[in-house]
């Protein structure tokens, strides 16, 4: 995760890709990771399917349901990752709801993640208040617990969350759930600027990023972008090449 810090200092933007593990069968995970790594993304978030993904919109929920139909579980995903022999050159993250982690065992989750080469985890229904449930275990394994901040996060809370932030901060661009959107509201820019001013770690914008116009709008106010639904959809429709321009739009060195 140090690399994210270096990238920030170099002025280049990060592109974090989200994929749903096991969408189309667990066998596809490896090729998807290899593809994205080859396409130049900065990091990959591997989503674990869950029966009740309340923070997600229809695209990711549907992908999760497809994965569940293939019998995908947290354990199987971690086993699969442990079996990889190709060179993983970018940070891999796990994004999962809390319940599968609790069922798996938090301590075991942290140590298995470590063995699977996971650098950070994101748990969208584990708010800052309850992070003690997980963080002591991830800390022990040197895995970062990524915090989310949103447009509705109050200033006092924001300060608290940022003071303990590690890895990067996931700044949610919408008042809502994941999924592609046409418009980004104007107050998002000001919000990103505020977060970035106070954050000790890079700030990445996520939820709803699907077009280069979104990237253009926010590029000066964030350190990177997280793209989920657009990638999930593209993989499902077998047209992932169409995402490459978006990746390039983010990662290309801008000399302004």
């Amino acid at each position: 995760m140090k690399r994210l810090e270096q990238l920030k200092n170099s002025g280049n933007k990060a592109f974090v890709a989200y994929i749903m593990a096991g969408d189309g069968g667990l066998g596809r995970l490896k090729e998807q990771v290899q593809y994205l790594q080859g396409a130049g993304v900065t990091a990959i978030e591997i989503g674990i399917p869950f029966s009740d993904p309340v923070a997600d919109g229809p695209t990711i929920e549907a992908a999760g349901n497809r994965a569940l139909k293939h019998g995908v579980t947290l354990q199987k995903v971690l086993e699969e990752m442990k079996s990889w022999t190709f060179q993983v050159e970018i940070p891999l993250l796990i994004m999962t709801y809390l319940n599968p982690v609790l069922k798996f065992g938090v301590e075991r989750f942290a140590s298995e993640c470590s063995k699977a080469g996971v650098s950070a985890v994101i748990i969208p229904d584990l708010p800052y208040e309850h992070k003690e449930l997980v963080q002591p275990h991830t800390d022990k394994e040197g895995i970062k617990l990524i915090q989310l901040v949103t447009l509705t996060t109050t200033d006092v809370r924001l300060a608290d969350i940022l003071s303990g932030a590690e890895g990067f901060v996931y700044a949610v661009t919408v008042k809502g759930i994941t999924g592609s959107r046409d418009e980004m509201s104007e107050d998002v820019k000001a919000f990103m600027r505020k977060v970035r001013e106070k954050s000790p770690v890079p700030v990445y914008a996520g939820f709803g990023i699907s077009k280069s116009s979104h990237v253009d709008m926010l590029r000066d106010d964030v350190d990177g972008f997280i793209v989920g639904s657009a990638i999930v959809e593209a993989f499902n429709d077998n047209r992932i090449q169409e995402i490459e321009p978006l990746i390039n739009a983010v990662t290309a060195t801008h000399s302004v």
Binding site: V54, A55, L98, P124, D125, L126, P127, Y128, E129, H130, L148, V149, T150, L151, T152, T153, T154, R157, V172, K175, G176
Partner: peptide
């Protein structure tokens, strides 16, 4: 507890 996405915390 309050196990909800950050958007709902406020």
């Amino acid at each position: 507890g309050q196990f909800v996405p950050e958007t709902l915390m406020k």
